[in-house]
Write a protein that binds this DNA or RNA. Structure first.
Lengths: 217, 217
DNA sequence: TGCGTGTCTCGACAGCGTGTTGACTCTTTC
DNA sequence: GAAAGAGTCAACACGCTGTCGAGACACGCA
């Protein structure tokens, strides 16, 4: 729990407080990172940029975070939590039709990433650089694959989805597709699908892969 | 046995016909890069490693390549040419059945990457780092997407494939899926599909997305 | 009031990596 | 045998990361 150090109500500018609290500095670093990430890749942002942006010196930065990647990781932890909650909700609530249920799932996935596109792109790129980012992503990805595979099994058990490929393999492939396609759409590098169409396209492929048709009964 | 050097000084780009020893060094750098890439990522290989591996000093390296990325790019140019040729062959030859045709296309894609897995993984990772790698990849990807979209249109025109999503969007999504899934399978990070199953899984999804069933008539 | 103690801060340093410069050595060619 | 130019490297300039040690500041406590 954090004690509330509210002795410094923001009174506009002016250097009243000789010293900001630790929490404020940490938040300032995080905010600076998100701001800077909006227009250049993490690789082009130095620890010094982050520190100066937060009004501190480079060594002081290291008091709060062990590295540049740690900042990204911290930023991402929140998004992951958000996405997880949203996904659990989707898979928990019953859907009126299979199409509707999957549409909501893919739509949620899309919206979550879209709401943090700079972060999403930075994240995807940092995966090649940082083992920690890679590990965190794998974890999240694995959870989604499992939820997905479980849902496919359920649909097959009730006779709606066709048998065929192992549900886990199907889930891995389809989730991978979503990840890659959304990255392309958000980052804008390479051939991509328009933002307005991407959910429909993904949904169509998911449905035909599971039900053999794009409009299951 | 090197071919006769081009005596006609035509307006060619790149390095002029150089001395044999120069060519040897260039090849040595390339070979060193491929060897080192087999057991550590490009980011963990310095220009000095490359130079020493090729028996030259670091400044001399810069006589041959403008950067580390340029070496990767050079290595990759060959693989791209190889893959392009293989793909053109596949799309050029008539298939006995749709399933067979697509199976050959995906299989070729798989084999090409598999034959150069270290390079493939390095490439995928370098995409986040180097604009040039990113640009080259986009180009290749775009070509594949176009071939694919053309093939889908042809299948629809003859009444075999179902109408539905725009063929280009479908092609982008499916090709993206292949890329991401194969990367996961080859790199081994994150949830992946076993090498022995990956072509079947991808094929199944492609077929149902295009024909509405995994065994089109 | 004075004195820990823990939090916070930064100047200075060590280290590693990149890319460049200028001088030097070998070959080839006329 | 001298000019041209390909090939080579020690030494440098620079930028970035991460660390260390010496403080500055706030706070509870005697």
């Amino acid at each position: 729990m954090s004690a509330a150090p509210d002795d410094a109500p923001s009174a506009g500018r002016g250097r009243r407080a000789a010293r900001l609290s630790g929490d404020d500095r940490e938040l300032a670093i995080l905010a600076t990172a998100e701001r800077l990430l909006a227009d250049r890749p993490l690789a082009a942002i130095s620890v010094d940029d982050l520190a100066r942006g937060a009004g501190i010196s480079r060594p002081t930065f290291y008091f709060y975070f062990s590295s540049k990647d740690a900042v990204l990781l911290s930023l991402l932890d929140r998004v992951v939590a958000e996405a997880d909650t949203a996904m659990r909700e989707v898979f928990g609530a019953p859907a009126t039709t299979p199409r509707d249920g999957w549409a909501r799932a893919i739509g949620t996935y899309y919206e979550t990433f879209r709401a943090h596109r700079a972060l999403t792109v930075a994240w995807a790129r940092a995966r090649s650089t940082s083992d920690e980012v890679r590990a965190l992503w794998s974890e999240v990805f694995e959870r989604w694959v499992q939820q997905c595979a479980t849902a496919i099994d359920a649909e097959r058990a009730r006779g709606a989805a066709l048998p065929g490929l192992p549900s886990r393999d199907l889930a891995v492939a389809l989730t991978s597709m979503n990840e890659r396609v959304l990255y392309a759409t958000f980052s804008g590098d390479g051939p991509a699908i328009a933002e307005s169409d991407v959910v429909d396209v993904l949904l169509g492929i998911w449905l035909s892969a599971m039900y053999g048709a794009q409009t299951p009964g």
